[in-house]
Design a binder for these strands. Structure first.
Lengths: 341, 341
DNA sequence: ATGAAAGCGCTAACAT
DNA sequence: ATGTTAGCGCTTTCAT
């Protein structure tokens, strides 16, 4: 395997000149550049990434830490991040955190700085206060909740607003007894997990409509899974005949709910209307198709990568105030909330 | 950030001894080892992966090249590979090939040998003859079709047998006019893509049952997508009122088909029974739930990683004959092929 | 059982 | 515009 020295020799220049060509640095005469490129092609030379990393401290790879690869939402996100990173010439290495805080924190440990130039952390296990005190040893962008006053750049879902819109849509379709299904809500006061943010939006929408809030209608599931959603629909929903709408914290949960309601003969959207959150690809193909909130995944991924690259590139930029970006969204209306029977 | 020299100094030994401790090499006195470990802990020392890689040529990372991260099947697979690799202390870097042969071949190029110790290639764009002549510059395990006489280890789906079983199940449930939906089938004679293998199983099952094969019932879709499946169900299925069963090349396609059939009022399983392939998580929660072939994803991932690790570890093992592993499978019967109306 | 020396391939800094 | 020098942090080889 050819080295930069071999190329230099073949081109009749110094290794440094080859390096300059490789890295698109100025001050290389076109003629010289040609010679070097020819030698590179001839020898089929490839840079040794390890050597470059050892020298520069840059690895050319960013980490993407997600709770679980095998979930449509994160699959969608990962695809978008891989694409966006590629545009910056960066590789993406995906890690699973299983939504456990120690794993999430571990991705920011110094040891990772040796492997990744930066990390995009799709946080699900951290508390807000933890996120606000994140002391990362490498550039980080947190993807998930909006972290006010946190120390790192973050890209967030418009959780509250979008949930309010989703619930508002149910209200507009005539629902009056709307359940909210979410995951475990943190006990820590001031902590903002997805569930509590979306619950806030849900409550606001009820208030907007002058509907009484009923905490009996707020259900905390053990997990964000289809199984949990289905289980709820089979056991709890039938016991609440007054129910006419369900807002699910994610499409995955909603998929389970649709299945469970079908099992117990509760018709959607006739008896109960259902709306989810995420606009996962599958949602459009369910029977009935699932109404949902569609955040702009590509914009989130693109922005996350851009923010990260800026921190990676500019050491001076460490001083820059942490930035936040809230993705645009829209409510996608499908059969599960259709108005006519 | 502490280096191995710092640790050596702190422990009062040479760098070499520290290295020996780090790499669990013999001939280190327990007392010495203790001293070193203490120094490591005290300084919070971490090996510099780049330096080690430069020296040894090993990166500690394997590549996983999949057509698309954002597809349930590959998400499921990726999760399993990440888990299996972790057990060997290896990181996984995921790449997308978009099922294009040049991208798939690129993952095996020498330049990647600098970044990955080996690659698991979920091939979808290569022809058999290409796969059989794969000249990889680093250890590779191909995950996908069974490559007879190929030069690399491979882990395969039991495509033919499982498809035969799936189709046989439809026959057993009384279907007589069974359609087969697949992706584009390669023109190259002798080429075995997923579609043609599964078609072979389908045809065998029909022959087993003494049913006439009717090539009019074999449909090649442009893509393995829900959209393509739905499109087919909406346009083609209604034109074939004799149809009573559909075997889809993947669950994703089947999801689209279920949706499309619902659109045109063809009832499943009453009028038409549908079976898929993959047993994606979602399949159990569709309405109707989808019967399918369930290959053992975890076994496939585990085996792929094991095979790869063997090639990486043992240079002498290059001589070993390429191994093939065919995953076990079972037919999972759900509502979409239920017998009673 | 431990250590000294050398070098993996690259690039930052400083010549020229 | 190009070249020289030095060294990133580790491990292989050969001593001791």
């Amino acid at each position: 395997m050819a080295t930069i020295q071999d190329v230099a020799k073949a081109a009749g220049v110094s290794a440094m000149t080859v390096s300059n060509v490789l890295n698109d640095r100025p001050h290389v005469r076109p003629a010289t550049r040609e010679k070097v490129l020819a030698a590179i092609a001839h020898l089929d030379y490839r840079v040794n990434v390890a050597a470059r990393t050892l020298r520069t401290g840059r690895t050319g790879t960013i980490g993407l830490a997600v709770p679980e690869v095998n979930r449509p939402y994160y699959g969608r996100l990962a695809a978008a991040v891989v694409a966006a990173a590629g545009r910056h010439g960066l590789r993406v290495s995906i890690e699973q955190t299983d939504a456990r805080r120690e794993n999430e924190l571990a991705t920011l440990a110094p040891s990772r700085a040796r492997v990744h130039d930066g990390v995009i952390l799709a946080a699900a296990g951290l508390t807000t206060s933890e996120a606000q005190r994140l002391k990362a040893d490498l550039p980080v962008v947190v993807l998930g909740e909006r972290i006010f006053g946190g120390p790192v750049d973050h890209v967030a879902m418009p959780n509250v607003e979008a949930s309010r819109a989703a619930t508002g849509h149910l209200v507009a379709r005539g629902c009056r007894r709307i359940a909210f299904l979410c995951g475990a809500i943190s006990e820590t006061p001031g902590d903002v997990d997805v569930s509590s943010l979306r619950r806030t939006g849900y409550r606001q929408a009820l208030a907007d409509a002058g509907l009484p809030g009923d905490h009996q209608l707020e259900y905390e599931l053990a997990e964000f899974t289809m199984a949990a959603g289905a289980q709820w629909a089979r056991t709890t929903a039938p016991a609440r005949p007054d129910l006419d709408g369900v807002f699910c914290v994610t499409d995955t949960v909603a998929m389970g709910v649709l299945r469970g309601l079908a099992d117990v003969g509760i018709r959607v959207p006739h008896a109960v209307k259902v709306i989810g959150f995420d606009n996962v690809d599958e949602s459009a193909y369910l029977v009935p198709s699932l109404s949902t909130v569609a955040p702009d995944h590509d914009a989130m991924a693109q922005r996350a990568v851009d923010l990260l690259v800026r921190r990676i590139k500019g050491p001076e930029s460490d001083d820059r105030e942490p930035e936040g970006f809230v993705a645009p969204y829209e409510v996608v209306v499908r059969e599960s909330t259709a108005s006519a029977g």
